[in-house]
């Protein structure tokens, strides 16, 4: 890592008396892919938009390293400047692709890129060059003359990222880049993110697809109720939070309610039990005992065991677990 590129210092932001961000502090290393995870409404998007200066927080500051590019008196003394005081310059540092692709649907792919590039003051030659490179990188070259609104969801997402990258920003911020996309497209987007990152662009992203975040991000920040509760590498986070195992059971005829009721009476070591579309999911730290009881109950209820799987939780499960804890706390 080449050092910190962005510092978020005790940022708080409220909307209509509702506090969305509570004293959030975070540092982003240059060249890393930082993933933000958290439940809906936890403040991920607000944090990302505060980073870009789109939202001005009531408290705290977001400072970025200007690499000596800021031609301002005294700038050389402080390598970090505030996003809010240097908003115009900050916009040249950041590239942002939001949850919803942001471009003109009635302009072609190329026109969109040229337009947004021109707004960054790129010279014509540089603009054309950047456009061509990004079109190729994003796999949109053959679609460059198509209207953006006519593109498929995946291509629109790629175009959005391309538009965010047209001025070659130091930091690329992606808000839910793979939401609503099929797995193939998601993989494509992630591979692009990796490619972009490899070019030296720092990436900050928020996603619900935690397994992907786990796979692709260098570090993950867990946000809960507007606060960053932890920031670390995925493996460290898993080690820190994954104390339970998950048992997934599929039975026939599959009267899971009865199974659940029986298990609740018999087992005291079960942390959580849920009926999902795939069957019964039990989370417990005493896996051996629980498995025994499960088999016993199934026999008693004339249920035929179709499938059983015991696994350590991934980031998804970890995230769910954190949310459950949260709900339990609340209750």
């Amino acid at each position: 890592m080449a050092g910190v590129i962005l510092r978020i210092d005790a940022v708080s932001k409220s909307f209509l008396k509702r506090r969305i961000l509570k004293n959030v502090s975070l540092s982003v290393e240059e060249g890393e892919i930082l993933g933000l995870i958290g439940s809906s409404g936890s403040g991920k998007t607000t944090l990302l938009k505060s980073i870009t200066g789109f939202y001005r927080p009531e408290a705290g500051d977001v400072r970025f390293r200007h690499f000596g590019l800021l031609k301002r008196k005294g700038a050389e003394k402080d390598p970090f400047v505030s996003v809010f005081s240097e908003n115009s310059f900050a916009k040249t540092i950041f590239g942002f692709a939001s949850q919803t692709p942001s471009f003109y649907e009635n302009l072609t792919v190329r026109e969109n890129m040229l337009y947004f590039g021109s707004l960054f003051g790129l010279k014509h030659k540089e603009l054309e060059s950047n456009t061509d490179i990004l079109l190729t990188l994003m796999g949109l070259k053959s679609h460059q003359d198509n209207l953006a609104g006519k593109l498929s969801g995946g291509m629109q997402r790629r175009l959005d990222i391309a538009c965010a990258l047209i001025h070659d920003p130091a930091i690329l911020i992606l808000d839910e880049p793979t939401s609503d996309l099929d797995p193939t497209l998601r993989n494509h987007i992630w591979s692009l993110v990796k490619k972009i990152n490899r070019r030296g662009t720092t990436v900050i992203l928020a996603s619900h697809h935690l397994s992907e975040v786990e796979t692709f991000c260098s570090r993950i920040a867990i946000i809960k109720d507007g606060s960053v509760i932890d920031v670390d590498t995925p493996s460290k986070l898993k080690a820190k939070y994954a104390e339970t195992q998950e048992i997934s059971i599929q039975a026939y005829p599959g009267n899971y309610q009865s199974i659940l009721a029986r298990l609740k009476k018999k087992c005291g070591d079960i942390d959580t039990m849920d009926i999902s579309s795939e069957g019964l999911v039990i989370s417990s730290s005493d896996t051996k005992n629980v498995l025994h009881e499960v088999l016993h109950v199934l026999e008693k209820l004339d249920e035929e065991l179709v499938d059983i799987n015991v696994s350590k939780p991934g980031l998804d499960e970890l995230f769910t677990q954190l949310n459950r804890e949260d709900r339990g706390d609340a209750a």
Binding site: T52, F54, K91, F94, G95, F96, S98, T100, P101, S102, F103, Y104, E105, N112, F116, L119, D160, C163, A164
Partner: peptide, 8 residues
């Protein structure tokens, strides 16, 4: 949809 991109 481009409103945010314009802002950026």
């Amino acid at each position: 949809r481009a409103v945010f991109r314009n802002f950026m």
